[in-house]
Computed example of a mutant assay.
Amino acid sequence: MTPIRPRTDADLDACVKALFEVHAADRYPVDWPADPARWLTPADLVRAWVAVEDGRVTGHVGLARVEPEVAELVGAPVAGAVTRLFVAPGARGGGLAARLLDVVLAQAAPLALEVSDEGRAAIASYERHGWRRVGSTRAAWLNAAGEPALLHHYLSP
């Protein structure tokens, strides 16, 4: 089983490599950031974890602080938000994404997350694991069709 541990600054280059694989396969993030290491370390990040196998980052997840309007949007108080969750294409199918979510949920609950409507596999995974869609909004950024992306908001089980 792939170990999951807290992310360190020394992991960022390997995280960027894994994120690039995810971007090439899934267009996540939708637009490749000018500074991907900084994108992986947003200002609201509380902690982050990585899955590492044979010295290679195969997965990543972060826990972020949330603004009060998130609680209003999801209809419940939330302790934080899942952010920057991804699993490298070669590491999929073994439950790693669910394990990464469990690590974050062990730190704080309930949690919120948002996912683009284009992320069909991610949506199916969240719903399989008991996350409940509580609303949808339009993003300020554009989807593959050049329209404001449709974001679905979820509350943890």
Results as ranks from 00 to 15, higher is better:
Met1Leu: 10
Thr2Arg: 09
Pro3Arg: 10
Pro3Ile: 09
Pro3Thr: 07
Arg5Gly: 13
Arg5Val: 07
Thr8Trp: 12
Asp13Thr: 13
Asp13Leu: 10
Cys15Trp: 06
Cys15Asp: 03
Val16Arg: 01
Val16Gly: 02
Lys17Pro: 00
Ala18Phe: 00
Val22Arg: 01
His23Pro: 01
Ala24Trp: 02
Ala25Phe: 04
Ala25Gln: 05
Pro29Cys: 01
Val30Glu: 03
Asp35Lys: 06
Asp35His: 15
Pro36Asn: 03
Arg38Pro: 05
Pro42Asp: 14
Ala43Phe: 07
Val46Gly: 11
Arg47Phe: 12
Val50Gln: 09
Ala51Gly: 14
Ala51His: 07
Val52Trp: 12
Gly55His: 09
Gly55Arg: 15
Val57Trp: 04
Val61Ala: 06
Val61Tyr: 11
Gly62Met: 07
Pro68Met: 15
Pro68Trp: 07
Glu69Asp: 15
Ala71Pro: 13
Val74Ala: 09
Gly75Pro: 02
Ala76Asp: 11
Val78Thr: 09
Ala79Ile: 13
Gly80Leu: 10
Ala81Ser: 15
Arg84Cys: 10
Arg84Ile: 05
Val87Gln: 04
Ala88Glu: 03
Pro89Tyr: 00
Gly90Ile: 04
Gly90Arg: 06
Gly94Gln: 09
Ala97Leu: 03
Ala97Gly: 07
Ala98Trp: 09
Arg99Lys: 14
Leu105Asp: 08
Ala108Thr: 05
Ala108Leu: 07
Ala108Gln: 06
Ala109Val: 10
Ala109Tyr: 13
Ala109Glu: 15
Pro110Arg: 13
Ala112Pro: 05
Ala112Met: 07
Val115Gln: 09
Asp117Gln: 15
Glu118Leu: 12
Gly119His: 09
Arg120Gly: 05
Ala122Glu: 00
Tyr126Lys: 14
Tyr126Gly: 04
Glu127Gln: 15
Glu127Ile: 13
His129Trp: 04
His129Met: 04
Trp131Gly: 06
Arg132Asp: 04
Arg133Leu: 07
Ser136His: 12
Thr137Pro: 09
Thr137Phe: 13
Arg138Leu: 15
Ala139Gly: 11
Trp141Pro: 00
Trp141Leu: 05
Leu142Asp: 11
Ala144Pro: 08
Glu147Val: 03
Pro148Val: 04
Pro148His: 15
Leu150Tyr: 06
His152Lys: 12
